[in-house]
């Protein structure tokens, strides 16, 4: 684990216990700080107190064996668990500098989802046109001015490296696109409202290698503007695209570190075993 030091941009600290992972002494500002986050599906505890920083405009990857809680952790960030009865959170995901705790019961999940964008494992565009898909998030936020919507749609599609492929058929149904294009459309849809955080849950696991490469490439350019948190079960993908990596196992965060360090010189032996393929 990296040295426990205070975050360079201090955020409201309510916990006295400092066993959690804190930001190392770098210049990188923190966009969100997860503190002792616990989560339950009914009686089953799926997260046992996770703490980690999410650095501003960096890619943070979450890796770990199947069923370790990667998706569960990611889905806390946009409170999608709230759709299902029996979900319970405890702890904090503090967005900085706003200072809102995303998992606070007092914060409306809709507000959280307006701040955070999410892309799912399986590309799931809406049964609408390409344009309407990207504009959907804008309409929800009350942005209806035609020129503004058109501008933002073009911008988001450009960011998602899809503009050139679809600019001549924006009114065509989104389902006419290939799987990889659909996933980039979903990324554009999440980007259009300019989210504070972009969450991606194994976004390439349903795609072929070429489409995967396109999306990985995309991460590189996106991260100039937006903070990215990505779940992947593909270790080399994490190594290729992320700046920081969190390794989870059975609901625990085992290690959080800069990706290079985590893969070449992990502090915990269990991480070592996982990244060298000895288990998982």
């Amino acid at each position: 684990m990296s040295d426990s030091m205070n975050a360079p941009h201090p955020i409201r600290d309510t916990s006295g216990d400092q066993t959690m992972t804190q930001a190392p002494a770098t210049e990188t500002p923190v966009r969100a700080q997860v503190r002792d986050l616990k989560f339950w599906y009914g009686k089953f505890q799926a997260l046992n107190g996770v703490s980690m920083p999410i650095y501003d405009r960096k890619v943070t990857a979450i890796i770990g064996p199947s069923g370790c809680g990667k998706s569960t952790l990611l889905r806390c960030f946009n409170r999608i668990h709230d759709l299902y009865p029996g979900s319970r959170y405890n702890g904090e995901i503090n967005l900085a500098p706003e200072g809102v705790n995303l998992v606070d019961k007092g914060i409306d999940p809709i507000l959280v989802r307006l701040l955070v964008g999410m892309v799912f494992q399986k590309p799931n565009p809406f049964p609408k046109s390409i344009f309407e898909n990207v504009a959907a998030g804008l309409y929800v936020r009350g942005i209806r001015n035609r020129t503004e919507v058109e501008g933002r749609v073009e911008e988001a599609l450009t960011q998602a490296a899809l503009w050139n492929e679809v600019k001549d058929r924006l009114s065509k149904p989104a389902f006419e696109l290939s799987g990889g294009q659909q996933q980039r459309l979903c990324i554009a849809r999440a980007l259009a409202p300019k989210p504070k955080l972009l969450l991606l849950d194994e976004p390439t696991s349903a795609l072929d290698p070429i489409a995967t490469a396109k999306i990985e490439e995309l991460m590189d350019s996106l991260v100039k503007d937006v903070t990215i948190l990505i779940v992947t079960h593909n270790l080399s993908q994490a190594a290729r695209i992320s700046k920081y990596t969190a390794f989870m196992h059975m609901g625990d965060l085992i290690e959080f570190a800069e990706t290079e360090q985590l893969f070449t010189n992990p502090a915990v032996s269990r991480t070592q075993d996982y990244v060298t393929g000895r288990f998982g």
Binding site: L83, V140, C186, R189
Partner: peptide
């Protein structure tokens, strides 16, 4: 209705009515 569609709709910030 696939849960993915529902989750993506909530994911962009829709309320239940929407």
């Amino acid at each position: 209705v696939p849960s993915g569609l529902r989750e993506s709709a909530y994911g962009i910030g829709c309320n239940r009515w929407q």
